[in-house]
Write a protein that binds this DNA or RNA. Structure first.
Length: 409
DNA sequence: TCTGGGGTCCTAGGACCC
DNA sequence: TCTGGGGTCCTAGGACCC
C-alpha cells in the first residue's frame, strides 16, 4: 500500500514537471517453444509446435518455434492447419508449470535492474527505468545488458522496446522480433505512428479495427487526426483512450502491484471433448470433474468464491453461459457442482450436442481455514468424480493429463 | 473434424430501494 | 392518481490479450 502511494505521488509530480519517463518492455521470443527447446536439445533448430492440449486433435497452436513460423505457422492457428503447412513439425503439449517457473526466474533477475517491474503476462515485463542511467548507462546499454543476461542464464532470447510510455514500449518491442532492441524517443513518435496500422496497437482487436476501417481510419496518424468528439460519441471512454494512444500518449503506470503473487480474480477450467456429447448424464459428469479441478486450485490458492459461472459450447462454437452469485462463498467441489446444477436447472436435455464445457468461480475472497480440506479428502473427491465418469462411459474414456499424478496414486 | 484454455475489463439493462 | 430519478447490485455478453 505504502509503495503504491509513493508511486502515485511521484507519477503526479512527473506529470506536473513534464518529465518524460523511460519505460522498457521485454517480450520473450516464442516463449513456450523456446523453453521447450532449451529443456530438450533434440528440439533445437526444428519446427516445433506447442499445442494447447495433450492430443493433437481439436487443438490450436499455443506457441511455435521460429523454424515453424518459417512455414507460415502462427499461434492461434488450428493444429490441422499447422500440420498441413508443415507435416514434419514436432508436436509438444503445453507444460505451463515449466513456463511459469521460467517466467518467475526472469522476473527475479529483472529486479536487479529496476525495482519498478510489472509482469503483465507470462512472457512480458515492463520496467520503469527512469533515472537508471546513473547506474547502468544509456537505455540502449541497459537493454543490451538485460538481453545478454537472459541469454546467458536461460539460453533463450527476448525482444526489448524502450519508449516514453508502456503502450509505445510494447509496440517498439514487437518491431524487430526476434532478439530485437528498439528505442523510440518522444520526438520521433509522430513520425513512427503516422503510417502505423491501427491493428498493431495492443487493445485494438479485430472488431475495433473493422469499426475504425469503416470510418476510413486505417493508420494511427489518421486516428490521431480524428476529432475527439466523434471518437467519444462513437466509443465512449474507449474513444478517448484511442485518441491518446494514436498520439503516442499513455498515462498508464508500471504497476508494482501487478506481480505474480497477486491473487487472481477468477479461477476456472474448461475442456473441449474429444467427441461432441449429447447425453445429459455425461455432460453432468464432466461438469462435476471440472468443479473438482476448480476446487483443487481454489484450495491451493487459499481462496473461495461466491459466483459460479457455467458455460457450454455447441457444435457451432457458440457459447451458452450463465452465472449466479450465491450468498455463501465456497471452495468445495461438490458444492460448486450443486450450484452448477441450480444454474442449469431447466436444462433437462440440451438441444444441441456439447463440444466443450467450462466452470469458473469468481467473487474470490481469502478462504476461511475451517473449509480447508486435508490432502486425502481432496484426492478422494477428484478420484470419485473421475471414477464416476469412467464407470458410466467406459474405462478411461476420459483422462485429463493434469490428473495423471492423482490417478496413479 | 478448422477454430484451446487461461484470464481481464467494460457496458447495457433489469430489479430494487429510497 | 400518477410519476421521476439516482444509486447499487446482479447478470449476460462482448471484446480483448497471451
Amino acid at each position: 500500500m505504502y509503495f503504491r502511494y509513493i508511486s502515485a505521488t511521484s507519477h503526479f509530480h512527473g506529470d506536473w514537471l513534464r518529465l518524460s519517463k523511460v519505460i522498457l518492455h521485454l517480450d520473450m521470443d516464442a516463449f513456450f517453444a523456446s523453453v521447450e527447446q532449451q529443456a530438450n536439445p533434440k528440439l533445437k533448430n526444428k519446427p516445433l509446435i506447442v499445442g494447447s492440449r495433450t492430443d493433437r486433435r481439436r487443438t490450436v497452436v499455443a506457441a511455435c518455434s521460429y523454424e515453424a513460423k518459417a512455414f507460415g505457422i502462427e499461434s492461434g492457428m488450428s493444429s490441422q492447419e499447422a500440420f498441413r503447412l508443415c507435416p514434419q513439425a514436432i508436436f509438444v503439449p503445453c507444460d505451463s508449470t515449466k513456463y511459469i517457473y521460467t517466467a518467475q526466474e526472469i522476473s527475479k533477475m529483472l529486479k536487479d535492474f529496476s525495482p519498478q517491474i510489472e509482469m503483465s503476462s507470462i512472457d512480458e515485463f515492463y520496467l520503469d527505468i527512469t533515472g537508471c542511467e546513473r547506474i547502468f548507462g544509456s537505455p540502449k546499454a541497459l537493454g543490451r545488458l538485460i538481453k545478454q543476461k537472459i541469454k546467458e542464464r536461460f539460453g533463450i532470447t527476448g525482444s526489448i522496446g524502450i519508449a516514453p510510455n508502456k503502450s509505445m514500449a510494447k509496440l517498439a518491442s514487437k518491431e524487430k522480433k526476434p532478439d530485437g532492441l528498439v528505442i523510440w524517443a518522444k520526438k520521433d513518435l509522430p513520425g513512427i505512428l503516422k503510417d502505423m496500422p491501427i491493428e498493431k496497437i495492443c487493445g485494438i482487436g479485430p472488431k475495433m479495427t473493422l469499426y475504425l476501417q469503416q470510418m476510413s481510419i486505417f493508420s494511427c496518424g489518421q486516428l490521431a487526426n480524428t476529432s475527439i468528439r466523434l471518437l467519444a460519441e462513437r466509443f465512449g471512454k474507449y474513444g478517448l483512450w484511442l485518441k491518446e494512444i494514436a498520439r503516442g500518449e499513455d498515462t498508464d503506470r508500471v504497476e508494482l502491484s501487478a506481480t505474480p503473487e497477486l491473487p487472481p480474480k477468477s479461477v476456472g477450467h474448461s475442456y473441449t471433448l474429444e467427441k461432441n456429447i449429447f447425453n445429459i448424464e455425461a455432460i453432468k459428469a464432466w461438469i462435476r470433474l471440472l468443479c473438482e479441478m476448480v476446487a483443487t486450485r481454489l484450495r491451493n490458492l487459499l481462496l473461495e468464491g461466491s459466483v459460479v459461472h457455467l458455460y457450454l459450447r455447441g457444435p457451432n462454437l457458440q457459447w451458452w453461459s450463465r452465472q449466479k452469485k450465491f450468498a455463501e462463498s465456497t471452495l468445495d467441489g461438490q458444492s460448486i457442482y450443486k450450484r452448477c446444477l441450480i444454474i442449469m436447472d431447466n436444462l433437462a436435455q440440451p438441444r444441441n450436442p456439447i463440444r466443450a464445457l467450462g466452470v469458473t468461480v469468481s467473487g474470490l475472497v481469502p478462504a476461511r481455514s475451517i473449509y480447508l480440506f486435508d490432502e486425502d479428502k481432496k484426492r478422494d473427491s477428484l478420484l470419485s468424480a473421475i471414477d464416476d465418469i469412467n464407470q458410466r462411459f467406459g474405462e478411461w474414456s476420459i483422462y485429463p493429463a493434469r490428473l495423471t499424478s492423482i490417478n496413479s496414486k
